[in-house]
Write a protein that binds this DNA or RNA. Sequence first.
DNA 1: AATATACTTTACAAAAGAGTAAAGATTTTG
DNA 2: CAAAATCTTTACTCTTTTGTAAAGTATATT
Lengths: 174, 174
Amino acid sequence: MRITAVEEYGLRCLLTLARSGPSKQMSISEIAGLEGLSVPYVSKLLALLRKAGLVTAVRGCGGGFSLARDPKEISLYEVLKGLGGPLIDPGHCERYAGQLDQCVHHENCSVHDVLGGLAGYVREFLADTSLEDLALGHTRGFVRRVGSEVTISRGTPSKNVKIITDKIDEKSIQ
Amino acid sequence: MRITAVEEYGLRCLLTLARSGPSKQMSISEIAGLEGLSVPYVSKLLALLRKAGLVTAVRGCGGGFSLARDPKEISLYEVLKGLGGPLIDPGHCERYAGQLDQCVHHENCSVHDVLGGLAGYVREFLADTSLEDLALGHTRGFVRRVGSEVTISRGTPSKNVKIITDKIDEKSIQ
DNA sequence: AATATACTTTACAAAAGAGTAAAGATTTTG
DNA sequence: CAAAATCTTTACTCTTTTGTAAAGTATATT
């Protein structure tokens, strides 16, 4: 389980755009210079981000890239999904079928259940962090565990929060 | 960000051992047959798991593999770490330094902060799930979100749980 | 001891991912 | 309209991961 190079560097390029201020154009060579990456590689990364609808490109003299939306409205989940897909994608079981046509655990697969649960958990985290959060450095999560219960707050926990968990609706699990 | 083949298949092999009951020996070809994998591939996976101290091997006629510990005492975190390392390892920044000797974000890197936060979050989840949980199918998490607060319970939330989050101790973040 | 069973190790081939190179297309500027 | 700037696309190479093959080592049984 790991972050791919495309995800790591693509995110950094996007973050550089977010930091450059709204609707300012930034060229590939500028971004490459700031991030210590080659121009062709940054071209490829930005092409992915453009296809994912996260940046817009303007060709020709004076052109460049800029964010397609307010950085507040771009979640880390969208970014990583655009750059390489989610932790568990719909084709997971087909891809990991071993030597067979169909995975032996096709029905009632606890591995898939738990990895899917993890993927949802990761998605919660990523969907809750915006590009703006990263640009401003609001990146730490606050975690508290009480027995088997875990409470996480993102952002700045300035006010008291009270959660009473009675019977949790299983349908709320993504 | 994805699960590697070695992690997926290695976990399945270990789970097959966990389901086979305590201290029973199981041969590579048995496991390969049950999982739909080739014998040489399962050999490689089990060698990794043995080096990680999760299974023990007995050679010769009547030999085979068995879990090194009670499945209740083996966390998913240990398994995935043994099979391929954590989401973010200590060498992350050195590996993703682009064309430079040192990552341009060497100091004060918000990308590393947030990915490190995510890695800790994932670790919480994985460390809280044992091989026994998987073998028995206790794999679903229960997630409830209230604003920017997220509450997760693992296992069966049979009794009412009340969490009052006042000022969260930042030192509790791993 | 010889044989069969079963783990162990090393080496290798195929596939996927990472990164580079080069030619093409579009827009602005002079 | 020509030239410069800048994005776009395709193809290619290198490295890592995936999976296979084969030879080696250890143990139990006869």
